[in-house]
Amino acid sequence: MQGLHDFVPTHLKAAYINLLLQVGFDTIDFGSFVSPKAIPQMRDTAEVLAQLELGETRSKLLAIVANVRGAETAATHPEISYLGFPFSLSETFQQRNTNSSMAQSMETVKQLLDTCDRSGKRAVIYLSMGFGNPYGDPWSVQLVADWAGRLTAAGASILSLADTTGISQPAQISELLPLLIGNFPETEIGLHLHATAQQRQAKIRAAFEAGCTRFDSALKGFGGCPMAADDLTGNIATEAVLQHLNEHNMLPPLNMEKWQEAMNYSPAIFR
């Protein structure tokens, strides 16, 4: 929702997320503790959290943070299991996204990990621009592996390779994901891909064939990154992921009635 121009009322956000919480997904990325000036849509994340019905869901909650202050605020909420931090492999995008350099953001990661340790939470570090960038900043497979190594050495136990602007190719996914899984066997490696409707099936197939077990998606492919100006490349559509898993007899136990309710409710949010 973060890129939507019109503010979505808090009660509508909560009602939508409450439907998703009943489906049975492992984790719901429900909000962001970030500057309301930078992302006005997320200014009510704490209020949304207060309206979530968590008594009968098995889903865990993840909140995005962009700095130490946001992490410390998020850590005060016992309902949250994961704090997600976007660490860009592009110096230009790190400045655009968090107003800090890669070196400064590495220090933020270390403080985030410490905050998570103290509060009983886990950090999810997104390797933003993980498949290249549109700014001309250096990128290579070795650079991805090197930064993944630095982050795991600092204590990160979950890395999510993120294709922030949808430029990844299936061949890259097939190369990078097994490399990271092999190099860091104690680390959970995930994927956060963006794609056009024409690209997503090939990317989904490549991801699961490469051994992906943690996969981010969004209902109907809504969303994108407002800091990256990728209006045409939304998130991977959850229904496309579910279709792939069903076709390969890998579909987890989900409440598909609640999933359909969420699908039907979504136009109230994404107008």
Rank of each mutant, 00 (worst) to 15 (best):
L232Q: 10
S266R: 05
N264S: 14
A154S: 11
A46R: 11
T164H: 01
M106E: 13
F7Y: 14
T10D: 02
T27K: 13
R96E: 08
I125H: 01
I39W: 00
D114G: 00
S59W: 10
L54G: 02
N97V: 09
S157V: 13
M250Q: 13
Q201E: 13
M227A: 12
Q95G: 04
H77M: 10
L4C: 08
A103P: 00
D26C: 07
A145F: 04
D231N: 06
T152H: 09
S168F: 12
F93N: 09
N18T: 09
G136D: 08
T165R: 10
V8Y: 05
C116L: 02
N264W: 05
C225W: 00
Q41K: 10
T238K: 06
L61R: 07
S35Q: 05
P185D: 11
L177G: 06
V109A: 07
A240Y: 05
A74T: 00
A46S: 13
N18K: 12
N183I: 01
E261G: 02
Q201C: 14
F215G: 05
I28Y: 06
W147Y: 15
M106N: 01
C212S: 15
G166T: 11
N99Q: 14
A202G: 00
A197C: 04
P40M: 03
F184M: 05
Q172N: 11
A154F: 02
P36A: 04
Q201N: 14
F30M: 12
A74W: 00
P78T: 10
P134V: 10
T76W: 02
A154I: 02
L89V: 08
T57A: 11
H11W: 12
A103E: 09
Q111T: 13
E79P: 06
L20C: 07
E247D: 14
F270Y: 15
A66D: 11
A66M: 14
L127Y: 10
A197Q: 15
L193Y: 07
M263E: 15
Q94V: 04
F85Q: 04
M42K: 03
L151R: 09
Q142C: 00
C116F: 01
G149K: 09
S32H: 08
Q260W: 13
L89K: 12
T45Q: 01
A71R: 03
L49P: 11
A15P: 10
A50P: 05
L21H: 01
